[in-house]
Nucleic acid binder design. Structure first.
Lengths: 125, 125
DNA sequence: CGGGATCCATTCTGATACTG
DNA sequence: CAGTATCAGAATGGATCCCG
């Protein structure tokens, strides 16, 4: 093999630990959005544009198991479920803020890079 | 489908843009490590524990195409190649700092959560 | 040392259809 | 409205062999 067998819970640094929590395409977005607004399932799904029901539910469950989000089922009909951040989740969302700022600050740059990258992919016509 | 067709380059927020860049299991680690030390290929591979040659090279190329890292081939023998952050990459690394701090601060919590999660998986039935 | 190509298995993600 | 089941496809990663 060409990589050291990594220990199950050993983190190389704090960032490594954080990544275990936010690994998943939509998790950072879910956490960050929840920090800005109280959110029902449907609201969340509209906010995190592009996510499917399957992934949203799956990530929500994992985030809940990880102590980042808290689920409240109001047991009404029609169904109403609220997702909110735990204190731990809130602190994580705050740590995410600089990334949001970075993206906003360099959005033009990022968009340009991805526009170029798109030209490679459909170069076939 | 069950999700709105998301526009190719439309970002819902700055975080969304950032995620396009650091999407990839090892990218944040690569960027963050590069911010701390000048790094040859081999050093990087040892630093980002668990990554395979295949993924490291692949992510490095993408990061280079995205203007985050810069590759310098010294054309020596034995081969020596250095990877460094561009100014853009450096600013990204700085935005990653709070996540590293969060992980360090909550490492015990994260480790505990993952230890519990491990018990589900090998509950042997 | 640094980099590359391939095969194969596992995991993650996504699209569709369905339920209460 | 909220959540679930199932299948298809892409990404990830291990192992292995190759090059300068």
């Amino acid at each position: 093999m060409n990589a050291e067998p990594s220990p199950p819970i050993g983190f190389s640094c704090g960032l490594d630990a954080t990544l275990r929590i936010i690994a998943g395409k939509w998790k950072p977005l879910i956490v960050y959005f929840l920090a800005q607004a109280p959110s029902r399932y449907g609201e969340l799904r509209r906010a995190v544009r592009g996510v499917s029901d399957k992934m949203l539910i799956q990530h929500l469950k994992e985030l809940e198991a990880d102590g980042i989000v808290s689920r409240t089922d109001h047991k009404e009909v029609p169904p109403r479920v609220d997702y909110t951040l735990t204190p731990l989740g809130l602190s994580l969302a705050e740590a995410l803020t600089p990334l949001c700022a970075w993206g906003a600050d360099n959005m033009a740059e990022v968009a340009r890079v991805f526009a170029e990258r798109a030209t490679w992919n459909n170069g076939s016509g």
